[in-house]
Design a protein around this nucleic acid. Structure first.
Length: 472
RNA sequence: GCCCGCUUAGCUCAGCGGUUAGAGCAUCUGGCUGUUAACCAGAGGGUCGCAGGUUCGAAUCCUGCAGCGGGCGCCA
């Protein structure tokens, strides 16, 4: 966790957070922030001032003797930004420990109450999505974005402390990692007049790269190339999927963490994934108790209990085959009946996590036919060494696998699926020269943030969301 | 992509075939010995999403469209 900025004064000015950590009672000071609410009585007005550094507000008392009531009533509405000076006074008999007794203030920016969309009441998350540019003024989004920031730091800390190299895989790529996913194409060709060959094919030699280019859907393939030199690497960056998924769990632009480790088999990788997730939960509980308490009170009463429970439980590991048996013996009426070889539906995953296990579940060894080409074939020749981590309330947070490191197996899989060999030449090279068993996984940042914040829609855990038909 | 639901004041919602469409909060005006989602009194504020249709009469029923939300699929 970063040190409080107060330690770096005078380079950094003090925030309300600093004030609450070490209040200079009896001293004169200036505080700057935004007005959350104002209450006016005959002789004095009270402000709740917030500055984004903490969810707590500072109560400011403005005496109408010193500052005209008309000025206060015309300027200090919810959302106005001010600098206010006075003495910090203890108030042991009041709900708050101290308040600022103002001597004067400077108005930086007013907020016309007839036009300013935010009010002191709670707004719906749906309404706030329509004003994503103003959401950061609310405590809810301050809490969420602070947790997002902290968790991003914790992700780096976890891997850096363990000798993983942070690698930057390209955003612009020539290939589709998963083979079949929908990509955003990137081009500088004029859309009104796309150059074509006589047979109608697009003349990509005139495009920027001289070939088709896309936004990456995953850094995994490049991550593997780097891991087969550096040993243990991780990526952490944005990824893009042009799938028309209209759900609370999908974004067109989202952040993904993808570690890739040479000389790791599936079991070691599942251990790492579980340890990593618990680390993130512990980190959040330790560093964001104020934010969690707020979010729990507002949105998800069970939030703290869920985090504690997930942190303490051993994730239940089930092979796909075991999971199918459990589902078939469950006596539950599912909309989609299961048989060996069918992909698990959301209802099946929910049953396994929420009813059967009642804790996070790791499913592994999936049928080869329903998984990606690069996953390592198991000796049974029917399954591949893949795993998913399923969480209560939010479903899949991690998908991973041991990668196929045997050249012949990988080559024949690529050919079987009719994929373009040329595109995967470099990838295949890592199997031709000094190939090693290796594994990795992908964690969706927004997915884990749903779990950590109690939110239920990924649009609410990213500052500006991109989803089909929506650019906040 | 398929299915379901919602859309009424700035916000959250009630009204679900029958006077002039309501409430709370917000706003404005006034009041209040220090408030804590302050309180009290009063006022303003509506093309009932849009376009058609049924009806003596539509916010209310029907159709289409749009936006939003949710479920499924796909996945992180």
């Amino acid at each position: 966790m970063a040190k409080p900025p107060g330690l770096y004064a005078p380079i950094l000015r003090e925030t309300l957070s600093d004030l609450y950590k070490n209040p200079p009672l009896g001293e004169k000071l200036t505080v700057k922030g935004w007005v959350r609410t104002r209450r006016t009585t005959r002789a004095v007005s009270f402000l709740e001032l917030q500055d984004g550094s903490t969810l707590r507000a500072l109560q400011v008392v403005l005496s109408h003797n010193l500052i005209p009531r008309e000025r206060i009533e015309s300027e200090l509405h919810t959302g106005a930004s001010i600098g206010v000076w006075g003495e910090l006074t203890p108030t042991p008999e009041r709900p708050q420990p101290f308040e600022l007794v103002a001597e004067g203030y400077e108005l930086y920016g007013s907020a016309d109450p007839e036009a300013y969309p935010l009010q002191k009441k709670t707004h719906s998350l749906e309404f706030l999505r329509e004003i994503a540019h103003l959401r950061p003024r609310t405590r809810t989004f301050q809490a969420i974005f602070r947790i997002r920031s902290g968790i991003s730091f914790a992700i780096h800390q976890y891997f850096q402390e363990r000798g993983f190299v942070y690698v930057h895989t390209p955003i612009l790529t020539p290939s589709d990692c998963e083979g079949g996913g929908q990509l955003f194409q990137v081009t500088t060709l004029p859309l009104q007049q796309i150059p074509t060959h006589p047979d109608g094919r697009v003349a990509y030699e005139y495009d920027f790269f001289g070939r088709p280019a896309y936004l990456t859907v995953s850094g995994q393939l490049e991550g593997e190339l780097l891991a087969t030199g550096l040993g243990r690497i991780y990526t952490f960056g944005p990824t893009f999927r042009a799938e028309p998924s209209h759900t609370p769990r999908h974004l067109a632009e989202f952040w993904m963490i993808e570690p890739e480790m040479a000389f790791y088999d599936l079991s070691m990788t599942m251990d790492l994934a579980e340890d990593f997730l618990k680390y993130l939960i512990r980190y959040t509980l330790r560093n964001f108790s104020e934010e969690l308490a707020f979010l729990a009170e507002r949105y998800e009463p069970l939030l703290l209990a869920e985090l504690e429970h997930a942190k303490e439980s051993a994730f239940l590991r089930l092979s796909y085959t075991e999971a199918i048996e459990i589902l078939q013996k469950s006596g539950k009426e599912f909309q989609f009946p299961t048989h060996w070889g069918s992909d698990l539906q959301a209802e099946h995953e929910r049953y396994l996590v929420e009813e059967y296990a009642q804790r996070p579940v790791i499913l592994y060894d999936y049928p080869k036919a329903i998984k990606a080409f690069y996953m390592r074939q198991n000796p049974d020749e029917k399954t591949v060494a893949a795993f998913d981590v399923l969480f209560p309330r939010i479903g899949e947070v991690i998908g991973g696998s041991q990668r196929e490191e045997r050249y012949e197996y990988l080559l024949s899989r690529i050919q079987e699926l009719g994929m373009d060999l040329f595109t995967y030449e470099n990838y295949l090279d890592t199997r031709r020269f000094g190939t090693v068993p290796h594994s990795g996984f992908g964690l969706g940042l927004e997915r884990i943030l749903l779990f950590l914040t109690g939110m239920t829609n990924v649009r609410d855990v990213v500052p500006f969301f991109r989803a089909p038909g929506q650019m906040a």
